[in-house]
């Protein structure tokens, strides 16, 4: 819930005292409907919306109606009809859109988490076709809250609509450098990458991303953002390279797993390796179906299963106890599927 902007609406002169409004009779809100979930409206609110209802009823398209929508929007920036009507008036009265952009900039600054205000900005930019200030503006908002969902959605729209890709990777890199756990920035990295390249083709780009991830994981291992991103990149790579797993990822994991240091035992690392072991073992199980005597395959499955069961126990009792039920369930899956090879 955003803060009420009521304070900012200071009616120097009440509407009922203004000669230019004397021909309008405000329509009060229906009392009967107001008996349930009644909001203790301020006097300003009652007055402004009384006139707003009257204007809507006759669909008046005038300067005074336009001014009225400003007060109404500031009193309740979440009222989508107020913004809708204001946009109709903007077009009908040929208002200065740059001035409107300035206005909505101020409103967003005080209500950065409101849906309607961002929508309104988008409408203005669509009419203006001038996206020049938009990246700077979203950066300003993201500086205050680097995970503001509205700001990110809006930024993606601006970038896509006006093809403003040039500096996005630098921006994302800066954000990730400042806060490696900023998941919105990681998401934006994926947004950039998947729009810029065809990820079903780009071996080289994907490999570069693997290096990037491993560097960030090495810097901070217990970071879900980088692990999730790594998994997605690997999924693309495997498809290109016919299930050939990127060796450097495995080497990295094995080094971390072999240190034995508690600091390195991130649940994300352990579960990553367990999932890898699972899919590998399943593949080998398939091969065993056609060649049941392959001792080497059986030995490999045993190694994977034992290792995984060891990690699952560690997760359940030490490193990720809140999900103990889940890890125990995965352990029972391992035993069910590969139990015969662990004896």
């Amino acid at each position: 819930m955003s803060d009420s902007s009521d304070e900012s609406v200071d009616l120097d002169v009440s509407y009922s005292q203004r000669p230019e409004w004397s021909d309008i009779t405000p329509i009060t809100q229906d009392e009967e409907s107001n008996q349930i979930c009644r909001i203790a409206y301020t006097e300003n609110f009652k007055e402004v919306f009384g006139y707003f209802r009257a204007i809507l009823k006759i669909s008046e398209k005038s300067e005074r109606a336009f001014d009225l929508t400003k007060d109404a929007a500031l009193l309740n920036p979440a009222n989508y009809t107020v913004w809708y009507y204001r946009r109709i008036l903007l077009k009908e009265l040929n208002k200065d859109l740059h001035q409107e952009l300035e206005f909505i900039t101020k409103v967003i600054r005080s209500n950065p988490k409101n849906y309607q205000v961002w929508q309104h900005r988008r409408c203005i930019i669509e009419l203006l076709q001038e996206p020049d200030k938009e990246l700077n503006f979203t950066e300003e908002i993201l500086k205050r809250d680097s995970k503001n969902y509205h700001a990110w959605q809006y930024r993606q729209w601006v970038i896509k609509t006006f093809a403003l890709w040039d500096n996005e990777l630098d921006y994302v890199n800066d954000l990730i450098t400042v806060d490696v756990r900023n998941n919105s920035a990681w998401n934006q990295r994926y947004f950039y990458l998947s729009n810029k390249y065809d990820l079903t083709q780009e071996n080289e780009i994907l490999n570069r991303e693997i290096d990037f991830c491993l560097e960030k994981i090495n810097f901070c291992i217990d970071n879900e953002s980088s692990w999730n991103y790594l998994r997605a990149v690997i999924d693309h790579l495997i498809k290109i390279n016919e299930n050939n797993y990127p060796q450097k990822v495995l080497e990295f994991c094995n080094i971390k797993l072999s240190t034995g240091r508690d600091d390195d035992m991130s649940p994300f690392l352990l579960s990553f390796k367990i999932d890898f072991n699972w899919f590998r073992s399943k593949e080998m199980l398939k091969k065993l179906e056609s060649n049941n005597d392959d001792v080497c395959l059986k030995q490999n499955i045993r190694t994977y299963a034992n290792e995984s069961l060891d990690y699952l126990t560690k997760l359940a009792i030490k490193y990720d106890t809140i999900r103990a039920n889940y890890w125990n369930y995965l352990a029972s899956n391992w035993k069910q599927e590969f139990g015969q090879y662990t004896q």
Binding site: M1, S2, S4, C37, R38, I39, A40, N76
Partner: peptide, 24 residues
């Protein structure tokens, strides 16, 4: 209380009273 009177601090929910009633 939600079904009766709400403070003006929730003014951004002015267009969503049916939602409030459902919650309550």
């Amino acid at each position: 209380q939600t079904l009766c009177v709400l403070p003006s601090a929730v003014i951004t929910l002015d267009t969503s009273k049916v939602l409030l009633a459902y919650f309550a």
